[in-house]
């Protein structure tokens, strides 16, 4: 594993009186594929949104290459352009075609040339098998197709880290397969990924490290081989039993 890219230090988040994240400490190293699992409401998604600064933490820090990301909009924009995010609800731009979706941010944020943006878009759309659909609008695609486009769109920014917020939770089982396949291929390229997921088999097979979250805490943080066979925390054991027993 390489150097530490993102370091989350003592991070807490509350919505009013409700504390969602409690003193989270996680270091993310280059090349790691981290899966975050846990029951709904355990704070997984909020953690991911805090990493991307879509939520503002109540206390603690998010460090990127040893530098704290502060609240200044400019600093946040710069940081986000290097840390991509894929959402549960895809969030493709409804007013633009697949191709335009993949070119907008490279053009307007990275300011690369039109031809380069086009080449990048086609390259990544080919990787996810969506190149033939460049002229389609998001509303004309299936959920699985949308998510694959969303992944390609994020890849166009050449991110250092890619965050996935339950990327398959809104999809039917068949579509889950096609998206997980794309993510598996991505994992082999050495891209650093943090994935919040309910797909236990995927987490076990693909992640280099699995984090189990419970009630806002990191309950367990271990290699999947250990976490899925011999969990130390009783809550982890209980949670995984429910998922793996059947």
């Amino acid at each position: 594993m390489g150097e530490t890219i993102i370091s989350i230090q003592d991070l807490s988040k509350s919505f009013g009186d409700h504390q969602v994240l409690r003193k989270i400490d996680i270091d993310v190293k280059a090349g790691e594929v981290i899966c975050i699992v846990g029951s709904s409401g355990s704070g997984k998604s909020t953690l991911l949104r805090c990493i991307n600064k879509l939520e503002r933490q109540t206390s603690g820090k998010v460090m990127y290459h040893g530098k704290e990301i502060r609240d200044a909009q400019r600093e946040i924009n710069e940081y986000r352009s290097r840390v991509g995010m894929v959402f549960q609800s895809f969030n493709l731009f409804n007013n633009l075609t697949v191709l335009e979706n993949c070119m907008l941010c490279t053009r307007k944020v990275l300011h690369i040339s039109k031809t380069e943006a086009y080449d990048r878009a086609i390259q990544h759309l080919k990787e996810v098998g969506m190149a033939p659909y460049i002229h389609a609008k998001p509303s004309q695609l299936s959920g699985g197709q949308k998510q694959r486009v969303a992944i390609a769109r994020s890849l166009c920014m050449n991110p250092e880290v890619l965050l996935f917020d339950e990327p398959t939770s809104a999809l039917d089982p068949e579509m889950v397969g096609e998206v997980l396949k794309v993510m598996k291929e991505l994992a082999t390229t050495g891209l650093t990924m943090i994935i919040v997921t309910h797909e236990m088999a995927f987490a076990r097979d693909v992640s280099t490290r699995t984090i189990f979250m419970d009630q806002g805490y990191v309950a367990e943080d271990d290699a999947p081989a250990n976490l899925f066979t011999n969990p130390k925390n009783p809550r982890t054991r209980e949670f995984l039993k429910r998922y793996l027993a059947g």
């Binding site: 991307n52 924009n77 940081y79 352009s81 290097r82 995010m85 959402f87 969030n91 731009f93 994020s154």
Partner: peptide, 13 residues
């Protein structure tokens, strides 16, 4: 989500 999709790629508000 439309805004968050753009923000998450570093686009300014």
């Amino acid at each position: 989500g439309q805004r968050e999709g753009a923000w998450a790629m570093g686009m300014s508000p």
